[in-house]
Amino acid sequence: GLEHMADEEKLPPGWEKRMERSSGRVYYFNHITNASQWERPSG
């Protein structure tokens, strides 16, 4: 619901949600550090 939507907005600075086109899996990418990970970043 709306709570989940708001929660997605609160990623740490630099992080954004991305989708891997080949598999459709969602991952997280940090455009500041060029880091990427499957787990939702905390902090």
Rank of each mutant, 00 (worst) to 15 (best):
R18I: 07
R25D: 04
R21V: 15
D7S: 10
S23D: 08
A35K: 14
P13I: 08
L2D: 13
S36A: 10
A6N: 11
F29S: 01
Q37N: 02
V26D: 05
G1F: 11
A6F: 12
R21N: 15
P41G: 00
K17F: 04
E20L: 09
H31A: 10
P13H: 09
N34K: 14
E16G: 03
E3N: 12
Y28D: 00
R21S: 15
G43W: 14
N34H: 11
K17W: 06
Q37H: 03
K10Q: 14
P41M: 01
R40T: 06
G14D: 06
W38G: 03
S23W: 03
I32S: 07
G24N: 08
H4P: 11
S42G: 11
A35M: 14
R21M: 15
S22Y: 14
K17S: 04
H31S: 11
I32N: 08
M19F: 15
D7V: 12
S42R: 09
W38S: 06
N30M: 02
W15G: 00
S42F: 10
E39N: 09
Q37W: 02
K10N: 13
R25P: 01
Q37M: 06
E39V: 07
I32A: 09
G24H: 06
V26E: 08
G43L: 14
V26A: 07
I32V: 10
G43A: 13
P12T: 02
V26P: 08
V26N: 05
Y28S: 00
N34E: 07
Y27R: 00
F29K: 03
K17E: 08
R18P: 00
H31N: 14
K10A: 14
E8F: 06
S36G: 02
M19R: 14
G1H: 13
M5G: 13
V26Q: 05
E9I: 07
S36E: 10
A35L: 13
M19H: 14
M5T: 11
E39K: 07
Q37R: 04
A6S: 12
G1I: 12
E9Q: 08
M19Q: 10
S22P: 15
P13Y: 13
L11E: 15
R40I: 06
E39S: 07
E9Y: 10
Y27I: 02
Y27D: 01
S42Y: 11
A35R: 14
T33S: 06
G24P: 01
A6K: 12
N30Y: 04
V26L: 08
V26W: 15
G24Y: 03
A6C: 15
P13W: 13
P13F: 12
P13A: 09
K17I: 09
A35W: 13
G14F: 09
W38Y: 14
E3Q: 12
W38I: 06
G1D: 12
P13K: 06
M19T: 15
G1A: 13
S23K: 03
W38T: 06
V26G: 03
R18E: 03
E20C: 15
E16L: 04
E39R: 07
R18G: 03
M19V: 15
S23P: 02
K10C: 13
S22K: 14
S36R: 15
D7G: 11
L2Y: 13
E16K: 03
N30F: 02
G1W: 11
G43D: 11
S36L: 11
E9M: 09
W15A: 00
S23N: 06
N34W: 07
A35T: 15
A35Y: 10
N30T: 01
P13N: 08
S42W: 09
K10I: 11
E9R: 06
G1S: 12
I32P: 03
N30I: 01
Y27K: 01
A6I: 13
Q37E: 03
Y27A: 01
P12F: 02
S42V: 12
Q37K: 04
R18S: 03
L2T: 11
H4Q: 14
N30W: 01
H31I: 14
A6P: 14
E3T: 11
S23H: 04
H4I: 14
W15D: 00
S22W: 12
G43N: 10
K10L: 11
R18V: 08
A35H: 14
E8L: 08
G24I: 01
W38H: 05
S36I: 15
E8I: 10
R18F: 07
E39H: 12
P12R: 01
H31M: 09
G24W: 03
E8G: 10
W15H: 00
Y28G: 00
R18K: 08
S22F: 15
W15V: 00
I32L: 08
E16A: 03
L2E: 12
R18L: 11
S42I: 11
H4T: 12
S22A: 14
R40V: 07
Y28V: 00
H4G: 12
A6H: 12
G14V: 01
H4V: 13
S42P: 07
L2G: 13
E16Y: 03
R40W: 07
R18Q: 06
M19K: 13
M5V: 12
L2N: 12
Y28A: 00
G1N: 11
E3Y: 02
L11N: 01
G14N: 08
M19P: 03
E20H: 15
W15P: 01
W15E: 00
K17T: 07
Q37S: 06
D7Y: 10
A35P: 01
E9K: 08
R25F: 04
T33P: 00
P13E: 09
L2A: 10
G24T: 03
H31D: 04
H4S: 10
F29L: 03
P12Q: 02
G43F: 14
T33M: 05
P12N: 01
E9W: 08
W38D: 06
G1V: 14
R25A: 05
E8W: 05
W15I: 00
H4E: 12
K10F: 10
Y27S: 01
T33H: 04
I32R: 06
H4K: 07
Y28K: 00
M19I: 15
R21A: 15
E3I: 12
R25L: 08
R25G: 02
